[in-house]
């Protein structure tokens, strides 16, 4: 069997901007208060859920954004320690024990909020650990990011953001398999990838 190429497909027509994916990601990965690997952005400004335009001509467009797990990741080339690397399934991973917290991966990554820096000692609203037990603890002074929930993927499950999406806007699978749902969607539907001119070859496809 050939090498897998795991990708995520997000149907922007089905996304209702409920932020469930962001919350599921945060709890599954036991992320500290200030860290959100997955965010749903809108055009209107920095605040949440703000439309574009001037009343009454307003337009709301949601864009769920996290690490794009690029095929040609700029972050991997920028990292001086090798803490950020690509695994055999095409997932861009982080080794927190190797990370020196230089943030060169953040500077190299063209995608907003894709990588986040744990500036403070990780603090949580609750005093017990939540999420998947196999997920490594966050460390102060290191960078972290979406891992496509690799502990779930290893068990044959989809990332947590896929399962919880109430609008069924998210899909996950192997693009190398022509029969997979993601391959079928990409063949049938019109899609875009973000910032392709940067040459990163992202593994997240947005159906439009």
């Amino acid at each position: 069997m050939g090498k897998k190429r795991l990708v995520m497909v997000i149907d922007l027509k089905r996304c209702i901007g409920c932020h469930t994916c962001a919350v599921a990601c945060k709890s599954h990965n036991n992320l500290p208060n200030e860290i959100w690997w997955n965010q749903v952005l809108t055009h209107g400004g920095k605040s949440m859920d703000t439309p574009r335009g001037v009343y009454p001509n307003l337009h709301m467009q949601f864009l769920p954004l996290a690490c794009q797990h690029c095929d040609n990741p700029a972050c991997v080339k920028a990292c001086p320690t090798g803490a950020t690397y690509k695994d055999d399934n095409g997932i861009v991973m982080m080794d927190y024990d190797m990370c020196v917290g230089c943030c060169s991966c953040i500077l190299a990554c063209p995608y907003k909020y894709a990588r986040q820096f744990n500036e403070k000692e990780p603090a949580y609203e609750v005093d017990f650990r939540v999420g998947n037990a196999g997920v490594p603890d966050q460390q102060k002074g290191t960078v972290s990011k979406c891992t496509f929930c690799y502990t779930r993927v290893a068990k044959g499950e989809a990332p947590s953001c896929i399962d919880v999406c109430p609008g069924k806007a998210r899909y996950f699978g192997d693009l190398a398999d022509n029969e997979s749902e993601v391959s079928q969607l990409i063949q049938k539907r019109k899609y875009i990838q973000l910032l392709t001119e940067r040459g990163t070859k992202p593994s997240v496809y947005f159906l439009i």
Binding site: A78, C79, C102, G141, T142
Partner: peptide, 20 residues
């Protein structure tokens, strides 16, 4: 500017690809 200054010695580990 390092989050983990005591790990700074590791920063030359990726000479084949990293300009840093």
């Amino acid at each position: 500017h390092l989050g983990k200054p005591f790990r700074a010695y590791r920063a030359m580990a990726n000479l084949p690809v990293s300009w840093l």
